[in-house]
Write a protein that binds this DNA or RNA. Structure first.
Lengths: 194, 194, 194, 194
DNA sequence: GATGAATGAGCTTTCATTCAT
DNA sequence: TATGAATGAAAGCTCATTCAT
């Protein structure tokens, strides 16, 4: 469908040139239509980009959710590892979305900045909640505060991994993933006790 | 000096709007001159931005260098802590430079992308080299490979902290700094032994 | 019928925005169809507007004719009064047509300008002819030249009233109508003698 | 000066094509510059047209004022005649301004419509005030109400003449001017007594 | 050093129109 | 009858850049 193709092309151009640098002409050309035709599907540039933003964010969410659901039953140690692996897999696999995401975080377009901010908060909340439930289920005696610290470490380590995806090549990145997993194991060991 | 003010205004606008979004008019207005006057100081937009890029990168380098020199004589543990603290201090204190840096990393302007890539490599090399010397000096018996791993962990943790500066508010950020330092201590303990 | 509704919507938009300012989309939206559907009824924008123009002009003609026929049998004095009253009634009652008419008079669209010019001439001719017949019938001895002067005064006063409709509110307009009727009476008295 | 030429070309195009029909390109071409250059002098199309509107209105005002000052000392009868003659002279001499004025009266651009409305009121007020003073000075015993009625008739007759300028050719118009002056004399005679 | 005036290139957007369905 | 999808042309406007002063 033309509309979907438009959003995909928008993500690609957003990633490569940023909001102002991505032009309606280029996006149209990538899709194989004329610029004027975009306006049949979207009211204006901002509306088009907002749809792209929403797609990126919901895509990210569904990816992380899928991983979470797949490994929630197993060991906590493995869950963390797989979530970290998933961060790398998603962000390298959908590099355009990742690059677009980076420019979105400080977008001068208020609506976009707001959407990303809202998402970040929502995603974080979901992640904390789910991890809390899962871990407490498995370690019933554990204090909430301890679990919370564990989750905070996980998020911190995840952020390091995310930025690594952006700036490093495959090899270094693989090394970073291993470090992340080891650090996470350390934290688990430290907090849960032996 | 007008030229300096121009570069500063460029950094500010670069941070706020990205390369394409930052206009010569706005930069000129911020400085209090007319757009045409910019061309007395810089050949064109790219040259102006490249100077801004260089300033940002060299500023970052000199900050990290200063911290390094200040703490290289002390304990390794403290050196790492201060370097991490320095990352937070620099990136929050010079938020515009940080934001500009983020957009620079994926800049569609080849020269800018290249400069940043080169810098990243150079900075990394310097950091590794300096840390290697310093640590080996203090732990003469330690294998190079172990030191290397330690440094890699430090860089990984530093990256996590960097991204935290970008997306978190002061409070969360402080918490992240503490986690970073604790993780680093863990690594030290793990690798150096007790 | 859709076609009629289209013409009505065209008049409304013509009045509000002028020829260039009135868009096919807006007209379609007012009617509740899509722009493409207009082309089933009209060859193009000009054809649509020409139909609107014709409707406005023939509507005006039929209104004035009706008034004329209604009062031609009575006193000349009353006929003039009612014709003047009719000018106000028509142009206030069908304000959209009046506003459209004003823009039509100097329309950059040759066909429209021509149609309006032709109509003005035709309408004038009809008016003069009818008034001539009616007045001569009632004042058989009167010289044709005198009747002609009377008619010219009537048209002049009618024009003043017309423009008053365009620029004044109801109250001022009412006052203008009374002045017009009094002036007309004066002319009658002056020319017909006591 | 380019700016003045721009305003003149704007009036000409405004008269010929209306607000929406007049394009920045055409105006630029008339002046002998490129469209982009207009934006050095005016913020946008509306600002340019607003300047044109102001010029038209103030021009009209200064013309009527001049006539008024020239004949205020003489007979009232002559003052009215000259004012009427002045209406014809101005509106035929500056046909573009007159045509532009007609489209302005019902302009879909709020600012323009407002400016014209405000002007109409201001001009009317000035006219009534000046005529009141002048006539009362010359006919000291006359009641204010009587003078008021006289002025109202003058304005009414002036409106008829104005619209005649718009729709008639020179010959008919001359005839209309004579009628207007005769009607005005009649009113004077009627109200001031013999 | 600085700018007034100008411009080419290109941007987003609008709009009348087409045509297969 | 009606429209979804598309487009050529042109609109208003922005912007980096130039150059004489």
């Amino acid at each position: 469908m033309t509309k979907n193709k438009l959003v995909q092309a928008t993500i690609k151009n957003f990633a490569a040139y940023g909001y102002q640098g991505a032009t309606m002409s280029r996006i149209a050309k990538d899709v194989g239509i004329k610029p004027a035709s975009i306006y049949y599907f979207f009211a204006n540039k901002e509306a088009l980009f907002q749809e792209a933003v929403h797609l990126i964010l919901s895509h990210h969410f569904s990816m992380m959710k899928k991983t979470f659901e797949q490994y929630r039953e197993g060991e906590v140690h493995q869950l963390f590892s797989e979530l970290l692996r998933s961060i790398v897999a998603y962000h390298t696999g959908y590099m355009d979305e990742t690059k677009a995401y980076i420019t979105m975080v400080n977008s001068p377009i208020p609506n976009i900045k707001k959407d990303v901010g809202d998402y970040l908060q929502e995603y974080n909340q979901w992640l904390v909640e789910q991890l809390m439930l899962t871990i407490q289920e498995k370690y019933p005696g554990l204090e909430e505060q301890a679990v919370n610290r564990l989750i905070e470490y996980f998020i911190f380590i995840g952020n390091g991994l995310f930025w690594a995806v952006v700036i490093y090549e495959a090899e270094t990145l693989q090394n970073n993933l291993e470090m992340a997993m080891e650090l996470m194991d350390q934290c688990l060991y430290q907090i849960m006790g032996e």
